[in-house]
Amino acid sequence: MNKLVALLSLILVGILTTGCVATPALPPETEVSYTEPPLPDGAGPPTDAPEPGSTEAQCARPTASLRPTPAGVAAENAPPTPTVDAVRERGRLIVGLDTGSNLFSFLDPMTGKLVGFDVDIAREIARDLFGDPERVDFRILTSAERIEALQDSTVDVVVKTMTITCARKEEVSFSTVYFQAQHRVLAVRGSGINGVADLANRRVCAVDGTTSLRRLQRIVPTAQITTVPMWSDCLVVLQQRQVDAISTDDSILAGLAAQDPYLEIVGDSLSPEPYGVGIKKESEDLVRFVNGTLERIRRDGTWNRLYDRWLSVMGSSPGAPFPQYVD
C-alpha cells in the first residue's frame, strides 16, 4: 500500500512540474520587404551624358549619300568593288540588328524567326547581291554596339532603325534615307503626359547609345532617365510603372503601343529621325550597292509593299523618302 501511495505521489509531482515548464518562444518572424520588380539586365542611369553645352558636329546635307553605281557600265570601265566582292565570295551578308524593335526587327512568336521592316530591307540587299533573299546572317546588337560592330567588321551592314547624324557620319557611312521617323513620346492613357514638356521631373525610359537619349538629356534636363539595352525593355518597365513614359521614334513607339492598348503616342515631334543603312567608312562600293537596292525598291513598289505589311498601324504609306546624293 505504501509503495502504491509513493508511486502516485511521484506521478503527481511529475505532472505538476511539467505544467510549470514555460512553453518555448516561437522564432521571430522574418521581415518581408515588398519592392518593385527588378529592372531588366543592363538597365540603369545614362552612361553617356553629354558635356554641358555640347552639340553634335554639324555637316552640310547630312542625309546625302553616294550615288548608286550606274547599271550597264562595261566591266573594264566599272570602278573596283572590293567589299562587295568579298561579301559575294563569302556567300552570306552579315547584318546587325536587334530582336526588340517590334514592327522593324523582332521574333515572330509563331515561327521564332526574325521578321519586320528592317529585316526585309536587309533581305532585299541580299536578293540583289546573291539572287537569294535568304542568304543573310543576323547578328544581334544593342544600339550602343552598332558603330563598333561596323568599324571592326563584325557585320557588313547595320539595318537597325539607325538615325543618320553628322556625328555618326564621322565614324561610319550611311545609305540614303530608307525611312523617315519622328521623335515623340509614349505614355499611359490618362497619365497627364501629353508631350515632351510634361516629362520634366518624370521618369522616362530610353535606350543607351541612341539619338533619342541625347536629345532628351538636352531638351528635358530634369527628366529622370532610365536606360535599357532594347526598346522592348522600355515597354516592360513602363507596364510595371517603373517609369512614366518612353521617348523615341514614333516608328518604334507604334510597335510598342501595338502590344498594349493602354498606351498612346502623344505630343508633337521633337525632331525628325531619318533612318539609313550603316556601313563601314572605307566601304564606298558597298554604300553605292546598297543605294542601288534602295533605288530599286522605291521604283518597283517593294518599299510600299513592305510598309503595308509591317507599318500600316502608323497609317497609310507616305511613300519612300526621296534620295539625296553628294555626287
Score class of each variant (00 low, 15 high):
Gln224Phe: 05
Ile225Phe: 03
Thr226Asp: 02
Thr227His: 01
Val228Ser: 05
Pro229Arg: 11
Pro229Cys: 09
Asp233Ser: 09
Cys234Leu: 03
Val236Leu: 10
Val236Phe: 08
Val236Met: 11
Leu238Gln: 08
Leu238Phe: 12
Gln239Lys: 13
Gln239Thr: 13
Gln239Ile: 13
Gln239Asn: 15
Arg241Asn: 15
Arg241Val: 15
Gln242Tyr: 08
Ala245Cys: 06
Ile246Cys: 03
Ser247His: 04
Asp249Val: 07
Asp249Asn: 08
Ile252Arg: 02
Leu253Gln: 02
Gly255Lys: 04
Gln259Ser: 12
Gln259Asp: 07
Gln259Met: 14
Gln259Glu: 12
Pro261Ser: 14
Tyr262Ala: 15
Glu264Phe: 10
Glu264Asn: 12
Gly267Met: 07
Gly267Trp: 08
Gly267Val: 08
Ser269Trp: 06
Ser269Phe: 07
Ser269Ala: 15
Ser271Arg: 06
Tyr275Phe: 15
Val277Ile: 07
Val277Pro: 00
Gly278Asn: 03
Lys280Thr: 08
Lys280Gly: 12
Lys281Tyr: 06
Glu282Trp: 01
Ser283Asp: 14
Asp285Thr: 05
Asp285Lys: 01
Asp285Glu: 11
Leu286His: 01
Leu286Val: 03
Arg288Glu: 04
Arg288Leu: 07
Phe289Thr: 05
Asn291Ala: 09
Gly292Lys: 01
Thr293Met: 09
Thr293Leu: 06
Leu294Lys: 00
Ile297Tyr: 04
